[in-house]
């Protein structure tokens, strides 16, 4: 099995704060990998290293190697990297423009001009994000008028429109109700046929439902990384067991 990302001995500092400590593991292609762990343990931080969003934080300092296929992410132009590695954020954040323009934003920024092409791409992306049927009559309406769950699926559609290889999801359902969450989870199950998905979640049931591999983080360290079934059925580490059984302090 091919690895999309391989993380080797990564240490990350925010100023003086040591956020990630000697993290190493590989993210397999076209699988769902979930990061679980308590708040502030560095899950989202590692996720943001994959598309270099941490570059925006001036005090952030990374040591070690993160490879995207066989190139170090630090050598890839961040704009190119972000077109290949899409990201969905915790809070649905569509732009205050029309639904159509939201999905077309990324391709237009890349210089796509042909109206027919853009139109096809938008419809295709919305269909893939299983949002098209709900919004096909009001593509010109402001995206902020959608419900929270619809907004998040719009964000996923916006991400798919870039035709990425990897989709990073930073707690995509934590701001949504259970029904919207279910829809997103179903969507993830479909999307993994085509994309590699890395998802950060606080919800262990969610991780066990949707992911193929799970990494358990604690205090900046990866305590355990293995296939989801084995991590939840027979955790090798005592800390992992405590956490997933809810006995963790």
């Amino acid at each position: 099995m091919n690895n999309v990302f391989s993380v080797k001995n990564v240490d990350l500092f925010y100023g003086e704060k040591h956020v990630l400590k000697n993290v190493s593991f590989d993210i397999p292609e076209k699988q769902v990998t979930a990061f679980i762990g308590p708040s502030g343990c560095g899950k989202s931080t590692l996720l943001r290293c994959f598309n270099r969003m941490n570059d925006l934080i001036p005090s952030c300092n990374i040591k070690g190697e993160i490879h995207f296929h066989d190139r170090s992410v630090q050598e890839i132009n961040p704009i190119e990297l972000r077109t290949r590695v899409g990201m969905v954020f915790q809070n649905p954040n569509p732009f205050p423009m029309s639904i159509f323009d939201n999905v077309a934003y990324g391709p237009r920024c890349q210089g796509m001009k042909n109206k027919k092409e853009i139109n096809d791409l938008v419809v295709d992306s919305l269909k893939k994000a299983s949002l098209y049927e709900e919004v096909k009559d009001r593509l010109k309406d402001n995206a902020l008028g959608l419900s929270g769950g619809q907004q998040q699926r719009l964000c996923i559609a916006r991400c798919i429109a870039m035709k990425p290889e990897v989709i990073l999801m930073d707690e995509p359902t934590s701001a949504l109700d259970p029904i919207a969450t279910l829809k997103i989870e179903e969507l993830i199950n479909v999307l993994k046929e085509e994309y590699t998905i890395v998802i950060v979640t606080h919800n262990m049931q969610q991780a066990s439902r949707i992911s193929d591999y799970t990494a358990f983080f604690m205090l900046g360290e990866v305590i355990e990384f293995s296939s989801t079934i084995s991590l939840f059925k027979n955790p090798k580490n005592k800390k992992t067991e405590d956490y997933i059984t809810g006995r963790f302090g």
């Binding site: 704009i79 972000r82 954040n93 934003y105 990324g106 916006r158």
Partner: peptide, 18 residues
Amino acid sequence: IPKGYRDASLALGASKTQ
């Protein structure tokens, strides 16, 4: 202007000027 807009735009591969 919410930080989310900036993050979303940059994460979609837009340059800072865009």
